[in-house]
Design a protein around this nucleic acid. Structure first.
Lengths: 142, 142
DNA sequence: TATTGTTATACTCTATAACTATA
DNA sequence: TATAGTTATAGAGTATAACAATA
């Protein structure tokens, strides 16, 4: 017996994915606003931290951001003195966090943790251990 | 013992949600392309079908589309003769499917079903019954 | 030849403010 | 006074094509 939904979309996992994702994104962006960051900024900072010296193109591949769109993105973070570019060879730029970037990331990570906790708190306790496995499975190249 | 991920983001449900959602959306839009539809079009057609006579504003509230953005959206579907507007009172417009809309929706629904099956097929069988409950729980107003 | 960073550009989606006419 | 539809507009986010410099 499933409850009858108000709309014919609530039984579609794709629709639920989209709505849950956009709601979560909006929530996270709201929490990050005081820090002057957006969710993508934090993803980038976290990636650079865990892979110091990652290349601009590499980062784009991991985060699924087009090379062309990375330019303005990286430039913005650099202009705020959150990251720094170091020439690796004639064409590649290694990305690193600045001290200010590390400090801001520290605060951002707390915000992300709060956000994660808020997300998981919506899920009944018995389903909570399934959240990461389910989402990980759903995310697989298409 | 969790496996060590390549990036520090894969343990964040919010990040997984976003990536899974955008991958799924892209997949669905690809499947719908031969029909000349996008995912939002199908959502709208399905909603109108299940609530014949729904108002433009009501539909926007259900689908989380701004009133202002509904105008061009509805106009496009109407210009393709997929939906029809009927004046309810001096200001409200009831939306209904045309015969062509119903026929196209029939085909779209098959595509959506294939897409749903493809999505679920990625999830290990034992987790599959958790997909809708988990996603439904994660989607709750923010 | 393939890759990196870059510019330019365009398209989709989304958000806001303001107007009108109706309820 | 609140709501429905509308217009105009701006901002994200994303996608593609092309180019120069380098590997």
């Amino acid at each position: 017996m499933t409850a009858k939904p108000e709309d014919p979309l609530s039984h579609l996992s794709g629709y639920l994915l989209r709505r849950a994702s956009s709601a979560a994104l909006a929530g996270l962006n709201g929490r990050l606003e005081p820090l002057g960051l957006r969710h993508a900024d934090v993803a980038m900072l976290m990636l650079i931290e865990s892979r110091a010296g990652v290349t601009q193109s590499e980062a784009g591949r991991v985060l699924d951001i087009q090379r062309a769109n990375m330019v303005a993105f990286v430039a913005r973070l650099e202009s705020r003195d959150l990251i720094r570019r170091r020439q690796v060879d004639g064409r590649s730029q290694a990305l690193e966090l600045t001290a200010a970037g590390r400090m801001l990331l520290k605060r951002a990570r707390r915000v992300v943790s709060e956000h994660e906790a808020a997300l998981l708190s919506k899920v009944p306790e018995r389903l909570r251990p399934m959240v990461l496995p389910v989402l990980t499975a759903l995310w697989q190249g298409g």
